[in-house]
């Protein structure tokens, strides 16, 4: 179990600031969804959490320990990051792709532990039947499942997913997010996922983080965060929020005039 703490983190490429003073917390067994318009810095924030890039200021802590003080291998064992891209270029069997997730533990001879964990994860995700197949011959949904399996096989304490369900059909989206939520709860993983689809975010996340131009616009429970106001100022969209059903539902109406939006922000 790892509690994630982000304190006042900023990051930029050259003079361009991409992430500005972000502070947030995430807890085991809970699923946090990062939402925000294109270019708001969602993927960059995830990479910062995955220790792929380093913050220019501020600090990231696992259980209160600054990750800069931690061993790199140790971090790799705690964190699993699944990037947005779900292409698997090489000729690798599904079994191997998943096994590769255990890279920090693998040596020239593969231990029985590694084989067992790989087996368990494949089973849990119902992927045993694909084990012998080549990963690049599978459909987009199946591939996504495999990459999630790869992220899980390391038995991470912090799971970072970048758009795990983009380009998937509606059934696959539900299946995968159900699975992620179930595992998050069962294994008490701290899960942070970037999601584009606001309805899915509202439905699955325990907490929403709205990122706008690199800063946190707001965060909190989906019901509290998803307001017509937020949607108009962050996304520039006029929308209706339907709260009558089991899930919060966003019904977009029309994009707002960009000029008006810009003007509004200047004031």
């Amino acid at each position: 179990m790892v509690e994630l703490g982000v304190r006042d983190v900023s990051f930029g490429y050259g003079s361009e600031v991409v992430i500005k003073n972000v502070t947030l917390n995430a807890f085991p067994g809970k699923m946090v969804a990062i939402i925000g318009p294109n270019g708001s810095g969602k993927t960059t924030l995830l990479k910062l959490l995955a220790n792929i890039i380093k913050p220019s200021t501020g600090k990231i802590m696992f259980d209160g320990v600054d990750i800069r003080r931690m061993d790199k291998d140790e971090i790799t064992k705690i964190v699993s990051y699944s990037p947005q891209e779900n292409v698997i270029p090489g000729i690798l069997t599904v079994y191997e792709v998943v096994l590769l997730g255990r890279i920090p533990y693998l040596s020239w001879r593969i231990s029985r532990d590694d084989l067992e964990i790989t087996k368990n994860v494949l089973e849990e995700l119902g992927l045993e039947i694909y084990a012998r197949k080549y990963a690049n011959q599978l459909s987009g949904g199946e591939r996504q499942m495999i990459l999630i399996a790869q992220a899980l096989v390391r038995e991470p304490k912090l799971l970072l997913l970048d758009e795990p369900v983009s380009n998937l059909d509606i059934r696959n989206q539900l299946e995968i997010l159900d699975l992620i939520k179930r595992i998050t709860r069962q294994k008490e993983i701290t899960t942070i996922t970037v999601l584009h689809d606001l309805n899915l975010a509202a439905r699955y996340a325990d907490k929403l983080v709205v990122l706008n131009r690199g800063s946190i616009y707001t965060c909190g429970e989906p019901e509290a965060v998803l307001t017509p106001d937020m949607l108009s100022s962050v996304y520039g969209v006029e929308a209706k929020i339907n709260r009558n059903n089991r899930f919060v539902q966003i019904i977009p109406i029309r994009p707002l005039n960009r000029g008006v939006e810009a003007l509004g922000q200047n004031f």
Binding site: A50, I52, K72, D73, I75, T76, S80, Y81, S82, P83, Q84, E85, V87, I88, P89, G90, L92, E96, V97, L100, G101, I103, P104, L106, W108, L147
Partner: peptide, 23 residues
């Protein structure tokens, strides 16, 4: 190269993926 074999294999998943695996 043999000693690096797992890491090199991970490169075949693509750069992003390999980085995410800690390579």
């Amino acid at each position: 190269l043999m000693l690096k074999s797992w890491k090199i294999t991970a490169l075949r998943l693509g750069d992003e993926k390999a980085k995410s695996l800690g390579v």
